[in-house]
Simulated assay, not measured.
Amino acid sequence: MLGVQIRISWPTGQLTATIDETPTSKALMGVLPFTATARTWGEEVYFETPVSPAPEPDARQVVEPGTGAFWTDGDALALPYGPTPISRDGECRLASPCNVLGRIDGDPRRLASVRDGDPVRVEHVATDRA
Rank of each mutant, 00 (worst) to 15 (best):
M1D: 13
M1R: 15
G3P: 11
G3H: 12
R7N: 04
R7P: 03
I8T: 05
S9P: 04
W10T: 01
P11H: 00
T16S: 13
A17F: 01
A17C: 06
T18M: 03
I19V: 14
P23R: 09
P23F: 05
P23I: 07
T24H: 11
S25H: 15
S25Q: 14
A27K: 15
L28Q: 11
L32E: 05
P33Q: 07
T35A: 02
T35E: 05
T35P: 00
A36Q: 09
A36W: 01
T37H: 04
E44A: 04
Y46S: 04
F47T: 03
T49S: 13
P50T: 11
P50D: 13
S52K: 15
A54R: 14
A54P: 09
E56H: 07
A59I: 07
Q61N: 07
Q61L: 08
V62I: 10
P65R: 07
G66D: 08
G66I: 12
W71M: 00
D73Y: 12
G74A: 11
A76I: 01
L77G: 00
A78N: 00
A78D: 03
L79A: 08
P80H: 02
Y81W: 10
G82V: 08
G82A: 07
G82E: 05
P83T: 02
P83M: 08
P85I: 05
I86N: 10
G90K: 09
G90W: 05
C92L: 10
R93G: 08
A95E: 13
P97M: 08
C98W: 04
N99F: 09
N99A: 06
N99C: 05
R103Q: 10
R103I: 09
I104V: 13
G106T: 04
A112Y: 12
A112K: 15
D116N: 13
D118V: 00
D118R: 00
P119G: 03
P119I: 01
V122A: 06
E123Q: 07
E123M: 00
D128A: 15
D128L: 15
R129W: 12
R129Q: 13
A130D: 10
